[in-house]
Structure formats: C-alpha cells, structure tokens
Amino acid sequence: MNHALYTARILVVALIIPLLITGAALAWSFALAAQLPARIVVHWDLAGHPNGYGSPFEFPIGLASSCLPLIAILGGAVILISHRGPLTPLAKLLAVTSIWVTLIISITFLGSLLDANAGKDIGLLLGLGFGSATVVGTGAWFVLPRGIRGVGGSVRPPVTPVALAQGERASWIRTASLSAGLTWGIVLICVAIAAVTIVSTILTKGQYWWIAFIPLVVLLIALSNFAWTVRVDARGLTIRSVLGIPVVHVPLDQVTSADVIDVQAISQYGGWGIRLAFNGRLGVIVRSGEALEVHRSKGLDVVVTVDDASSAAALLNGLVQRSAVPLA
C-alpha cells in the first residue's frame, strides 16, 4: 500500500476525527450555553437526579479539558507506535478508543446542556451516546490499515540446541529486571497516588478511609513485577518474581520448542510486567529487545525479555531433544 495513504488513514482515525468531533461539540455547546440562563443544572447523582448548579459555560470548558488531553495521549501513542513499527492490534484499539471516548464525552456534555433547562435525568442520553460511539468506533476500525496479528516479535535465526548426554544435568539462570528509570517512574506514580489518597482521606474526614489502601496495593503489584529470576532446567522454564510470586512455569514435557525474538514492550505487549498480550502470548516483559519465546503443546506460548536468551533457547531445545530420545 501507498505509504502516504497508510499514514493518512492512521492520522485521520487517531487524531483528525476526534479533533473534529471535539471542535464541533465545542462550537455547538458555546452557542447553546450563550442562550441559557446564568445558573443551570451542571451535575446529576448516580440515580440521575440533579444535584449541582452552576454557569452553562462550565460545559464547553469541561468538554475541552476532558477531550483534548485524551486525544493527545491516545493519538500520540498510536502515532509513536506506528512510526516505530507495524500497526499492532493494540495501536488500532487505542486509535478507535480516541474516537469512541471523544464521542461519548461530547454527547454527554451536549445532551446535558440541551436538557439543562428542563432538568431531566440523563440516563437515556448516556445510553444513546454509548451506543452511537460504539457503532462509529467499530466503523473506524475498518478505516485503519490492516494490523499485524499473532506476532510475538521478530524471530531471530534458530539456535543450535545444546548437546546433552544422558544423565548430564544443565541449568541456565538469569535475572531480568526493569531499568532504573522505569523503576523510579513507577515509584513516583505510587507516591503521587499515596499523596492524592491521603489528601482525599483528610478532606472527606476519613469517611472513605479504605482508599488509603489503594497505593499500597498498587505498590505491591509493582514490586512483584520489578525483577524476575528466569530458569531453564530439567523441570522446564520457570520465571519467578524475586518476591516469590507470581510464578510462570512451563513443564518440560509441554515445551515444543524455544526461539529468540525481538519484542517491542509497549506496542506488542502493552507495557511492562506480567501480561496477556493481544498476540495470544503470556509475556513477562521488563524492556524491549531480546526475548526468549517458548512454544508449548498446551496453554499459551510464553515470552520473557531476558539477556543471553539464545543460551536459554539452546538449552531448552537441547533438553526437549534429549527427552524425545528413548532411554537405552
């Protein structure tokens, strides 16, 4: 396909359509707000009854400040991913989400303004917004170029299996850990969440005290994904968090073969840590680049980013080859 057209289709779905939707909704909501009295219903409770009042111009401002950052983040991510490599299903989903979410937000804000004078409940409106956004989003999926499916990463040439004698024991052990930069980033996010929850707990006079546990849970999940011990031996492949859990284990009798591949952490696996990827693999991802890919007879194939993956693959293939030879 023509490269300019390929890029244009991505740009249109990820950026231009969401921006046009937001622009149109903004213009319309300004026009509507100008006709409304200075004080109207601006908020509804979960049951759909009005419970807040304010200026009608809060609507266009709210609309712009919700849509524009979302478009910047989602569209920016899609363009970055498609610039670096093939268009993955994840990138397509992000692009479609950009349209979906701006439509829902726009319809909700506009509908609220239209209904504001009457003070009606907005349940039906939200349903309508959700439905039409989903239809348009699904259509946008097909405007995008075809994505790359089922790829765990680019496969390197096969490795020569380690030749093992009967009775010989072999083990390959290596640690895979997140880079220092990422680790600090995650710690900072945890600190930020902790600050927000502490302030909210104080502001609500301890009414929602349990939210103070949120940063703790986030930190625990993050910690359990920081570093992993990757082991290949007669038991098969074992990937264990340095905290002890989680553990990913593929018994040797389920291993069919092992490869060395190069992966993109964000575009192919959606980030770092232990994850189920769109490409149908279970990933333990600490960075982009060299990774061990283990194909198995049942269950999901496993991908783990680890240095010297070729030695791991060579040993695993050697162990599989030896176990296929009947004992004399």
């Binding site: 093992l164 024991r169 072999a170 052990i173 040993l315």
Partner: peptide, 9 residues
C-alpha cells in the same frame, strides 16, 4: 549463565 554437570563423571 549456563551450568552443566555430569554425575557419572
């Protein structure tokens, strides 16, 4: 790191 031993040796 690849480690190999042979108990028969």
């Amino acid at each position: 790191m690849l480690l190999r031993i042979d108990p028969a040796s």
